[in-house]
Every structure is written in C-alpha cells, then in structure tokens.
Nucleic acid binder design. Structure first.
Lengths: 344, 344
DNA sequence: TTTTAGCACTCAACTAACTAGAGTGCTAAC
DNA sequence: GTTAGCACTCTAGTTAGTTGAGTGCTAAAA
C-alpha cells in the first residue's frame, strides 16, 4: 500500500505530466505547493514508486512518467472529476432540440460536442436496431418486379429493404402475407423475426400462400439481417495535436482503428456497463498495439436499459479528470432526454 | 508550342517523378530508352521547359519536378490511360451483387474498391435525395403525441421523419390529409414538395382541415428539408503512405478536408460533368491550401442523367494514367448496373 | 530515523563543422 | 545542333563537442 506522501507525489507527477507531456523531475514535484519536501526526498520516493511499478523512466537521466499501473491508481484513487460550468451544461441540454426528428442526428451532435469540449477524438454508438421491437410492416410496390419493404420499430426507427418479387406471385397474395405478418409479429424484436416465423408461423403461412418456395424467397429478403449499428466519430484530427502521435506509424494504426472497418472499438463500447464511467488504459483496451491509447466510455440508457454508449479516445496521458466529469454529465443527460423524447 | 523532343522529355520526367517522388536529373532522363540524347542536351531542354513553366526546381542543385502546368499538359496530351485486366473488371462487375438491396451499400463497396485498386483515398457521393420524385407517403402513429412519417421515392429510397402531432387533431383528419397529399403530390421531386403544397393545395387543404395553424405545423415537419446526401470515404490512411504528406501540418489539413464537415469536396463532386473523367490538379480544385492535392472525378448516371460521382484524391504526383483508366471503366459500369437495378 | 544539501555522473538534444554526392550551368570541342 | 568536361551549388548525412536537466549516492543536519 502507498503512503500518503507517495500518493501525493504520484498525483503530482500525473497531473504535471498530463499537462506538459514532459517527464517530470524531482525538483518540479518538490516545488508544487502541496508537497512540502525537498527534491532529494522526492527522489527517494520516486525510486520506490518506480520499483513498485507506478512510474517509468524513459532513460537514466530523465524525469519520471506514470506507467499504465500509475495511471490506473491515479484514476481509481487520486483524481477528482472536474465540475463543469453552466455554459457546457447548457450546450449539452441543447443537444436534443425541439425539432430533433432523428435520434441519429442527436447522437451525431453528441459526438461533435464531446470532441469539441474535450479536444479528443469521440466515438458514439447508437441504439442497436436488432433490439428494437416490431411496430409495423409495410410493402410498397415499385416496379413489376420489385418493392420496398419497410419495417417501423417501437422506437420510431424505419428500416427499408428493397426486395425482388418472385415471378408469378400476385400482389394480393403478398398483401395478405404482409397483413398476417403484421398481426403475428407485433412486439417481436427484429433479431428474432426470422426465427419466430420459422418456428410458429410456417403452417399458417403455407395455408395462405401456395408456393412455399417463393414465399421463403420473399421472407428471406424482407427479414434479412439488418445493418449493423453505425458508429459516429468526431474530431479524428484532434489526435494529431497530441505529441505522442507525432510518429507517423502510430498515427496510421490509430486512424485505421477509427476507420470503421475495425470492430474492436465497437466491441469495447458495447461492453460498457450500463451505469457509470469506465476507463480503459493502454492494453486494458485489449486493442493490439494500443499501449499509448486510453478510452473512456459510458452508456446511455432508455428505461434503465443500456441502448448505446459514448466514448472518448485519447493518449494514455489524457485529462482523465476533465473527461470523466464531462462523460458523467452527458451520459446521464442523454438518457434523460431520450426517455422524454420517446414518451412524447 | 512544345517540340516533340520537349514533349518526350516532359513525359519522361512526369513518369519518373510519379514513380519515385524524387526530383529527376538530366542523366536519368537521358538513360531512358525512348530518349536518345545526352544529359547535356536534356539539360538545355529542361532549362527551356522550366522557363516556360512546365518544370520546377526545388533548389539549385536538385533535379526538376513537374509544375502544376506540367502535370496539366501531361494529363491532357501525354499520358495513355492504363488498360485494366480481367481480374479488376470482374471485381467491378461484382459490386452490384444479386442480393444488393440498398444502393448505399453498392456505393460504399464502390468506394472501397476504388481505394483498394488505386491505393489512394476515394470519395463517392450518392444520388441526391432532393431530386428523387415522390412515390408514396405514409404516416404511422407511434404514441399519442408522435408519429413516423415515411416518404418513399421513385427510386425506392425511404426517408423517415418523426413528427410531433398537434394537440387536438384527430387521427382520421390526419389520415385524410395524408391521403390527399398522396394523390396530389405523386411524381413531384422532394425538393419541391413544400412549394407545391403552398402554391396549389392551400385552398383544398383548408377545406379538409379546420385548424389551419395545426396543419401547417404538421406539414412543416413532414416535408422538412431532407438530409444532405452522404459522402462515402475510403482509404483515408492511404494518404499517409505518400511521402508528400509526411508533414504533420499538411496531413492535418488534408484530414480536415475529408472529415465530412467540409463541403468543398462535395461541391467538386457535384460539379463534375455528366460524362468522361475530369482531373483537377492542385489549386484547380479551388480548395484552399490544396497545392499538393489532385482530384480525379467522374459521374455515374441513371437514364443518362448524372445522379452521383466517384472521386479519387491523391498527391499532385499521383498515377494519373492508372486512375483515369480505372475511373472510366467504373463510372460506366456503375451507370449500366444502376439502370439494370432500377429496371428490375 | 528521517530529511536534506552537495556532488559526481549520465544521457538526450542541440550546434557547428565537415564530407559526399547528385545535379546544374557554362564553355569549348565535335 | 549536340556533346564532353569541369567548376560550382546545395542538401543530406556524419561526427565531435557542448549544454543542461535530472539522477543516485553519501554524509551531514534535524
């Protein structure tokens, strides 16, 4: 266990390094108001802290920087989340404006605001379509051979699907099919639609529609796996301002990470606990080669069920106190607004 | 006008520089098979070409590199577009697979393929929703106070709009309203919907709906300006491989350009002529600070009307011959497939 | 026993001087 | 008109030297 003095020193080093990005020497620690000891004393303590794994030395004659373990301790026990002012809270309240008609829009704004206020890269993942429940099905013929098939969910999301019509199936038969599905599939989550049809409705359907093959052909198209939930990124270039990403190679792997194809960030966001702010430091993110990256995540909820997450990506040397404070406010506020939005 | 020999020299310098990214000296030009003159002769010609503005010298004792004007001449008169092999053409044909249900999907794949085959960053802009024509309107109540309003267009695109229902307006009235709009607005382009309602339907509508204020409130929400057409970017990180973007500052402004908020690329894509491949070099892009960037664009069409564009972004020193050849094939192929797709 | 002052030592980062080499422009010969 | 030869220019890379921030250790002070 660390002594009070060691904690204070570790805290001072973290704060200093986070601000300056330069290894912190014993002298500058001892000059801090809160730490009333000489540089020599600090040096001894620093040597101990290094031995315990909380600090690192880039090279012999440099100052110390916090190790991953050091940041962990700082985040868990030493920092006090920043309290944000009225102005920022006001901006957050405005995310859901009166005329917000798509949640996607609000989510995108959230991402932008998050990046703007923190000066880091933000990542936001929206409600998972698969978990929505079916509200309404509709088929709208387009040409002789194609139609648009629309799925409206309980949360007001609309999913479109273009389908090819099987040869020789009359419009009226298809309409009957859709009507039946509409009656029987109400309230089923989208991910289970296909399953329920297969399990419970096959008999009934074959009674309506003679050509079984054609019907399956149509159903498969209509209820095809919906697109994955989109990820919103903002402020990608902010990373370039961080001295640790001056290196082109690191920069490139970071950009690749954000390029969308990579699923690891999405997985991390999806795995965030439904309440509170979670901090993943360095390889805790379990992203390969992400030793210099930290990710701070928080969920937002609807009826206390987690339906999405916001995240801020920065160097391990990021301003945890500031970001954690902000994420706490934002995630709670979004949850509140979402509930209002859907209750209206 | 340039002599044949000068053209051959300019050509050689362009090809060499595009491949090596190093200023080209007189010796390496004279060693090329096609150019049978000594280094000294080449030097004289190079001095002339520089005076005419086709070449530049980074510093006194370096070789020459093509100027913007030089590239322009190279693109317009010297290069021969690369003929692509069966393998690539096959990949292009596969962009529209049998199970393609969203055009967006095909567009995204196009963008990815373009970037993969060229090793540059690709930008693709899809059909402008505003130009689609109305096919079908539908209103689906969600809660007591809100509904989802769906617009289906002639190209099978579905647009959703969440609307707040005005207090005290009965569902049946609203249904009548929607029915009327459905009859009267068929075939009108989305951008003109609101206008047409105001101009031609106000009288008729007031006869149906007593509360004029509430109706306007509803209409404004339903026919609100649709979202801008999305831009698809692929291979952003490919730019990092180009030596001219080693510089962090240039890199940052480039990434900001691609970040989506910036409209200049969209404008350029929208302004591309409906047939043929167009090359914008350096400040011809009229993007501020884009002296080292070139953009190659081509439209794709539906019924010989331009409905979108593909673009490849690279350094001015990009492989024009390769990219131009590819874009020509792809844009034509997409147009063909799109027509097939919508005729089905 | 704990803390501090002093001092020798280390090492990255910067600077200046030097070198190598690629390429030029000019001149004179072919 | 073309080419060989040569002096000149300028960048990039290397080496050696200097500076300064910071450390670890020791011995004295509290």
């Amino acid at each position: 266990m660390l002594t009070e003095r060691q904690k204070r020193i570790l805290w001072a080093i973290c704060e200093d390094y986070i601000e300056s990005a330069e290894p912190v020497g014993s002298r500058s620690v001892s000059k801090k108001d809160d730490v009333g000891f000489s540089a020599a004393t600090i040096r001894n303590e620093m040597a101990d802290l290094e031995e315990m794994g909380f600090l690192e030395q880039p090279h012999t004659s440099a100052g110390r920087i916090p190790s991953q373990q050091g940041y962990r301790f700082y985040v868990d026990h030493l920092l006090t989340p920043q309290i944000w002012g009225d102005e920022e809270i006001h901006a957050i309240h405005n995310l859901f404006q009166k005329d917000t008609t798509h949640i996607e829009q609000a989510i995108e704004h959230t991402s932008e605001l998050l990046s703007q206020l923190t000066n880091y890269t933000s990542v936001v993942i929206g409600p998972k379509l698969q978990d929505h429940r079916l509200r309404h099905l509709q088929m709208i013929p387009l040409t002789e051979h194609s139609a648009v098939f629309i799925i409206v969910t309980d949360l007001g999301h609309v999913n479109q699907q273009r389908v090819l019509l099987p040869e020789g199936m009359s419009i009226s038969v298809m309409e009957r099919l859709v009507n039946l599905l509409n009656k029987r599939l109400q309230g089923i989550s989208l991910s289970k639609l296909r399953l329920v049809v297969e399990r419970d409705l096959t008999d009934e359907l074959t009674r309506y529609v003679a050509e079984y093959g054609n019907m399956i052909f149509l159903l498969d198209q209509m209820l095809a796996p919906q697109q994955e939930n989109r990820i919103y990124t903002s402020g990608t270039t902010k990373m370039l301002d961080q001295p640790e990403f001056r290196d082109l190679h690191k920069m490139k792997s970071l950009l690749d990470l954000l390029d969308g194809k990579n699923q690891s960030i999405i997985q991390l966001l999806n795995s965030s606990p439904s309440s509170g702010v979670q901090v993943k430091i360095g390889n805790e993110t379990s992203i390969e080669g992400a030793n210099h990256i930290s990710l701070i995540i928080a969920s937002f909820t609807l009826d206390s069920e987690s339906i999405g997450a916001i995240g801020v990506l920065g160097p391990t040397r990021m301003e945890y106190a500031k970001v954690i404070g902000l994420m706490d406010i934002i995630s709670k506020d979004i949850s509140k607004r979402l509930t209002e939005f859907y209750e209206k």
